[in-house]
Write a protein that binds this DNA or RNA. Structure first.
Ligand SMILES: [Zn+2]
Ligand SMILES: [Zn+2]
Ligand SMILES: [Zn+2]
Ligand SMILES: [Zn+2]
Lengths: 142, 142
DNA sequence: GCCTGAACCTCTATTCGCTTTAGCTTATAC
DNA sequence: GTATAAGCTAAAGCGAATAGAGGTTCAGGC
């Protein structure tokens, strides 16, 4: 029987996060000691490792929920799992594209500023006026 | 005098978002009509455009707050603005690296799955076992 | 002066994936 | 027996908005 702290150490997950996963139904409800502390089996450790690894690869908790369910039914076709992964890949590729464009713009504005007063700052100039940009950066942020 | 809807259209910002920016003190409190509706000047439009453009380049609202303050003091040195931009660039470059590694892993697992039953699904296999990965993906998600 | 409909208002809740805080209780080792 | 590490719950907070409910104001036409 493993404590929550052991799971935490073995998977690099904060204790609170493990409890959070239980709360949203991603981890099964753990058994408890007489005093109310959670105790886990190896299979819970495996499940948590699966969740964390999937998170590291960028899957959303919702996708992970689906993947876990599939993983629990070994006889089913894996088409669904593959399509989730392909969807994730497409998303990553899209974000990559946006970030690459962003990087270019940022690099350019940083490089072009000669570092005098704010009045002549290239950085601020670009921020004030999108027409100085080479790309469209549609969408926001990330 | 411009209405909030006009600002919204001209900058591609949702009306709610403009009010939100006011609420968090990023936009100045707008003047009001007798009936309580917001009315804006051109300078408010400029400020909002600055904010949105900065957001598109991935700056956080906190960074934007600093940049706006600098922008309001033309006589100051632009070193600070430049350093905010460089910081942003570094962040983008880091995320790019992570995403590129992610993309590789995802691509590989998708490509290697022969699409049979869940029991032999390469996608799920990789998710269960990080040792199948080529990279470390330290950190999570994005 | 009134009607209509678009645009505006406030306030609250929700999203995602956790993290933090506050205030306790339990387990373990000496 | 007691110190201390580790555990517990419940609630709030983060960033950056978005969405909805339910009500008010504005501009134009008649
Ligand atoms: Zn500069
Ligand atoms: Zn631009
Ligand atoms: Zn498969
Ligand atoms: Zn891995």
């Amino acid at each position: 029987m493993l404590t929550i702290g052991t799971l935490s150490r073995k998977t690099g997950t904060k204790v609170q996060t493990i409890r959070y996963y239980e709360q949203i139904g991603l981890m099964n409800e753990a058994g408890r000691t007489a005093g109310g502390q959670r105790r886990y089996f190896e299979k819970d450790l495996d499940r948590l490792a699966f969740i964390r690894h999937s998170r590291q690869l960028g899957f959303s908790l919702d996708s992970i929920r689906e993947l876990l369910e599939l993983s629990d039914n070994p006889s089913r076709s894996c088409a669904e799992a593959d399509s989730i992964a392909r969807r994730q890949l497409r998303q990553v590729e899209q974000r990559l594209k946006r970030l690459q464009a962003l990087k270019k713009e940022l690099k350019r504005m940083v490089a072009e500023c000669e570092g005098d007063s704010v009045a002549e700052c290239k950085v601020l100039e670009v921020l004030r006026d999108h027409s100085e940009c080479l790309t469209d950066h549609d969408g926001i942020g990330a």
